[in-house]
Design a protein around this nucleic acid. Sequence first.
RNA 1: GCCGAAGUAGCUCAGUGGUAGAGCAGCUCACUCGUAAUGAGCAGGCCGAGGGUUCAAUUCCCUCCUUCGGCUCCA
Length: 643
Amino acid sequence: MIKITLPDKSVKEFDSDIDGIGLAKSISNSLAKSAVCIDVNGELKDLSYVIKEDSKCKIYTKQDQYALDTLRHSTAHVLAQAVLNLFPGTEYAVGPPIEDGFYYDFLFKENIKESDLSSIENEMRRINKANQLFIREEISISVAKNKFLKQQFKQELISTADPSEGVEGDNISIYKNDNFEDLCRGPHVSSTSQINHFKLTKLAGAYWRGIETNPQLQRIYGTAWFSKEELDNYLARQKEAEKRDHRKLGNELDLFVNTDELGPGQFLWKPKGSILRQNIEDYSKKAHADNGYEYAYTPHIGRSVLWETSGHLDYYKEGMYPPLKNEDNKDDEYYLKPMNCPFHILIYKSDIRSYKELPLRFFELGSVYRYEKTGVLHGLLRARGFTQDDAHIFCTNDQIEEEILNLLTFSIKLLNAFGFDSIEADLSTRPEKSIGNDDDWLKATNSLASALDNQNISYVTAHGEGAFYGPKIDLHVKDAIGRRWQLSTIQVDFSQPDNFDLQYVDSNNKRIRPVMIHRALLGSIERFTGILIENYAGHFPGWLAPVQVKILTIGEVSNYVKEILKSLKNVRLEIDDRSIRLGEKIHDSTKEKVPVSIIIGEKDVSLRTMALNIHDQDNQKDIKLEDGIKQIKNVIKVPKFKL
RNA sequence: GCCGAAGUAGCUCAGUGGUAGAGCAGCUCACUCGUAAUGAGCAGGCCGAGGGUUCAAUUCCCUCCUUCGGCUCCA
């Protein structure tokens, strides 16, 4: 007698052993049909898994994420099978499910091309039609090693595998279907016939085990779903995301441009983009000025000794532009700044500081230059030249926690103002390559953690992800289509004050080392603008839009337009009085994503009315002038910044 | 930096071993127009750069640059 407890606490009893599918059938035929895998006492198993003792079970159906993962994992196997059929002698590495799909990594005898994907996909369809069963086997490690004799990656996996990877004692599990077998902990769908709705999406390079010095494999990405509808939805979603691409919209909306002559990773801001950027910068500057920060301005280059002292040349030389040299004086070398902090430190050092002055907060929209690898550049989101909303806070040890607390509030309010309401935090700890002593690191990390706790912000710890000089809190936002972006970063630093021998005089007239806090809230203005573009799909809120209002005229209404202009002083406004049809004017203002279009014709003049098209709202006709103006002012209102 | 893809008019793209085409945008003219592109005409290109093969290269080959999708990286 076996008792099986289901999630609703009900108990099913069976006279003998029962497998997953049998259990599903005993509950209902429809459940058996949509069942994909089963959780037995917290472990995911195939439906063919035989339950031999009293257990807690949950059956996963096509609606569950685990079921999707299982399908995708199985599809990855079929991909590898197809590849091995078509390209004998290929070595195969790993092929897990990932968000929205799966991949498999291969070492081909000769690299394949993207055009090979269609024949691989065809072979996968053949395997799908062949209705092959996935069969689990447990074999000993030594048998496994013999089985995968010519597979160096499998050999390595066998040697290093642990229980989470299908090892139990001396045994390791494999899955077979037809001529194909692979190391795998499972579970899988029962047959290849269930793998119907998939598509190979891209071919890319990927290092074995993600380590740059390891051989580079070719990774094939794909997506798989239980229904055609879901697959089509996914593909449509991808298209939708493409439409939001800030590089595409930046071009279409005339915001910024990059040219070959300028060099990669640098951008020119066109007038419309500059207005957008200026709005963002002005808002940030004012928020800072109103909340205890003082402006600083610093140059773009500094002597190499500065970067030696700061440690940047030791820790980050690869990421810096090569030095500017002086022919007449070889020792006079300059570097473009990759960070603003050494300059702010020099400002701090330019005076003897008293404890009464602290905390000192220097704020700057500082443009920095980092020599990013060509392959990582990505429009505004990853540029070589960019501007940080950067500040450095110099304070006493006792002030750290309160500063961090205030910073968290400040940062969250600032992100809120730009329309980001969903915010999450990461706490990054000491990386391998770093400076400073363990005590200081621990102290700094703890003060960050307790600030997060105090603010009731949930966070995950990112081990070893801190900066080389200190731990950090990163704030992430979710955008309109659910993507997560890292924006704010707050970093505690005991090392730079040491490097630069910073001091303040305390109340006992003793010289004490201050602590530094580095922080950028919007991060890079370029990147932030790019994220805003994608978040709003180019439909900026009224206060940010480069053109806030467009007046579309019909016939001769110029005097009435002048009157309207008087009520809309300081509004970024354009008038379209071309002698073309109204439809075309509307088409253009829509394409330019102007938030508000006012339409006025001759009949509006005597009635003192207008028609109003406001983005995302129904068109309005015969609106009273005053009412229209009121609505417009509401749409373009700048959000208040209040702590 | 590495693997794959791509670079043709301002933009989006077609095309060919015999030095190029469309739509949109631009300019000119006509139309004077009430909710998502009026019509006609004109102008616009060293086919990313350099080298090679060829009688001939935008097309084929090589190198480089840039962009795109990933990997690694992101102080």
